[in-house]
Computed example of a mutant assay.
Amino acid sequence: MSTGRWDPWNELLPLREMMDQLFRESMIRPRAAGMVSGIGVPVDIAETDEAYVVMAVIPGARPEDVQIQVSGDTLQLSGEVKEPEVEGTWLVRERRYGTFRRVLTMPGPVRADDAEAEFVNGVLVVRLPKATVSRSRQIPIRSVS
């Protein structure tokens, strides 16, 4: 039989530790996921022998409302999803509207001039051909006297 008094704060400590862990894991993203601002834009990135393929889910976006910029190994997606006008009163509002900006770092450099983008069934698909990697070679050292 325990002789100590019950301390409610000791009971909350494990709960706080679990909440802290949940918060850390939900806020920290891997580097490949990129920086996000505004409304969330989830992406998938695939790699083939020739290119990186980025698939971004942007429901309600029109091609003219999305900007794509490539610089070195960085892809930036930005734009705006405009709120639809409806007659009447909203009963349920789960979709998000507003501006977005997503910056993604590819594993290697890409050829920006050959990049292509299209909307396929509401998903933005960006194909970024890989830049040719310079071959390594041995460099002879001259002797200068």
Rank of each mutant, 00 (worst) to 15 (best):
G88I: 12
R96N: 06
D20A: 13
E50G: 06
E17W: 07
I58Y: 03
V57I: 10
L128T: 05
R96W: 08
L77Y: 02
P109H: 07
P107V: 04
N121F: 14
A117C: 02
A61T: 02
I45Y: 00
E64V: 13
E87V: 13
P30S: 08
P140D: 08
P14R: 05
G79T: 02
T105N: 07
T105I: 06
F119E: 00
A115Q: 04
A32F: 13
N10Y: 11
R142E: 05
E87I: 13
I28P: 00
W9D: 14
P8M: 04
E116I: 01
P109G: 02
W90L: 10
M27G: 09
A112T: 04
Q67T: 11
M27H: 15
A33G: 02
D20P: 02
P14Q: 04
P140L: 10
I139C: 03
A33E: 10
E25R: 14
E11Q: 10
T89G: 00
D7P: 04
M106W: 02
R62M: 11
R31P: 03
E80Q: 12
M55L: 08
G108P: 01
V54A: 01
L128E: 02
V86P: 00
E47A: 15
A115M: 11
V81K: 05
R62V: 10
P129L: 11
P109R: 12
S2T: 13
V120S: 05
Q67V: 07
A51F: 05
T3D: 09
V43E: 01
E87K: 14
L124R: 02
T89F: 09
S134D: 07
S37P: 03
V70H: 06
V110T: 04
S136Q: 15
E80C: 06
V92Y: 15
A61C: 05
L15M: 12
D65C: 06
A61E: 01
S143Q: 15
D20G: 06
W9T: 15
F119A: 02
V70N: 03
D114T: 04
E64P: 01
A32P: 00
V92K: 15
D49V: 14
V66F: 08
M55E: 10
I58F: 07
Q69N: 11
S37G: 08
K130Y: 05
E83A: 11
M27W: 12
I28Q: 10
D20N: 12
S134N: 11
E11F: 11
D44S: 09
S136A: 14
D49R: 15
V66H: 07
P14F: 08
M19S: 12
Q76M: 12
V103T: 13
A112G: 01
P8F: 07
E50L: 14
G72P: 00
S2E: 12
G40V: 12
P109C: 03
